[in-house]
């Protein structure tokens, strides 16, 4: 019963969001595209970080490969945008399959740091390649009209959320959660941990790459530093964790809430918005370490003691 209410609500929200471009100002639509792309990225991180428990700092690489894959396909090979998105996604998935084999053997800090290193290396490599325009980056053909990009971004969020919804109630998802909770036990119960982890990484890569491709064509300009920006990876993590990692809607809600707050603040002064972001992270980790999703689930039983209980559980 409750599940049906949530699903209905989600459909209504999605339909309302789809109608926004017909009533909103261009500035609002631009804000909406950024917000939706971040939601899709947070959701893609959720698959490898939230469900599988591997805190990846390399997802910005998938985004960057998607941006460049789409751009190179359109510029160097004269392919249409749609095909370009597929090219970007395929490159990212192949990269995830190869990279995953090597780095998904590492755990915890080591995995996080190794993926961070990979992101740095990729930025530097792309800044030095001829086909990617080196440091100067690439300029894509201009396509007027934010509406198409808005609807595409919204569709990506919906698809990503449906994928996560499928994962959450599938045998595959059970395997991922078992890996997150206890990898050795999962293996001894018959979960092919290596294949599952790599598969999760690849799905995450595909979604991130499409987001990168949409963004590249929308902005019409990409350069290595912004396309492979680790700060973007950090945003995905913060939004997913703020909303509730390992939940179906948490990352999307987290991305919407934080984007909105940050938009309001940065219209004042951007430095203050940055400072606020940092404070939100610190406060959220201390008082609601399992995100909004968990807060909503348990607040009615614990009330305000919820926050104190979280602190008590982890302090020394």
């Amino acid at each position: 019963m409750r599940a049906r209410v949530v699903v209905t609500l989600c459909v209504v929200v999605a339909v309302l969001l789809a109608g926004v471009p017909w009533i909103a100002s261009p500035a609002t639509i631009e804000f909406g595209i950024n917000m939706l792309l971040l939601a899709a990225l947070a959701q893609s991180w959720n698959i490898i970080g939230g469900y599988t428990g591997y805190p990846s700092f390399g997802n910005s690489v998938f985004y960057g490969l998607g941006s460049y894959g789409t751009a190179v396909a359109m510029l160097s090979w004269q392919l249409p945008f749609g095909v370009g998105l597929v090219v970007g996604a395929v490159i990212a998935v192949v990269f995830a399959l190869l990279l995953g084999r090597a780095v998904l053997r590492l755990r915890g800090h080591y995995f996080a740091i190794c993926t961070l290193g990979v992101a740095e290396v990729m930025t530097a490599i792309v800044s030095n390649l001829e086909i990617t325009g080196r440091n100067q980056g690439l300029v894509l053909p201009l396509l007027k009209g934010n509406v198409l990009f808005y609807e595409l971004s919204l569709a990506l969020v919906v698809v990503a959320t449906l994928v996560v919804w499928w994962i959450a109630r599938s045998r595959f998802g059970f395997g991922l959660v078992a890996i997150r909770e206890n990898e050795e036990a999962a293996a001894s119960m018959g979960v092919d941990t290596t294949r599952y982890k790599i598969f999760a990484f690849a799905i995450s890569a595909a979604i991130g790459a499409v987001a990168g491709g949409i963004h590249a064509y929308w902005i019409t300009f990409i350069d290595p530093v912004s396309a492979f920006d680790i700060g973007l990876n950090v945003k995905m993590i913060i939004m997913a964790v703020f909303g509730g990692p390992g939940s179906i809607l948490g990352p999307v809600v987290g991305a919407f809430v934080l984007s909105a707050i940050s938009e309001v603040l940065s219209s004042e002064i951007s430095t203050v918005a940055g400072l606020f972001f940092g404070i939100v992270i610190v406060v959220a980790v201390v008082f609601m370490p399992r995100g909004i999703a968990d807060l909503l689930r348990r607040f009615h039983t614990y009330r305000w003691r919820y926050f104190a209980a979280n602190v008590r559980a982890t302090r020394v």
């Binding site: 939100v280 370490p289 302090r315």
Partner: peptide, 16 residues
């Protein structure tokens, strides 16, 4: 306050 939290949370708070 978070020293006994999972490694990921301490990583995140120091990032904050």
């Amino acid at each position: 306050l978070v020293i006994r939290a999972p490694m990921f949370n301490t990583l995140l708070i120091t990032f904050g």
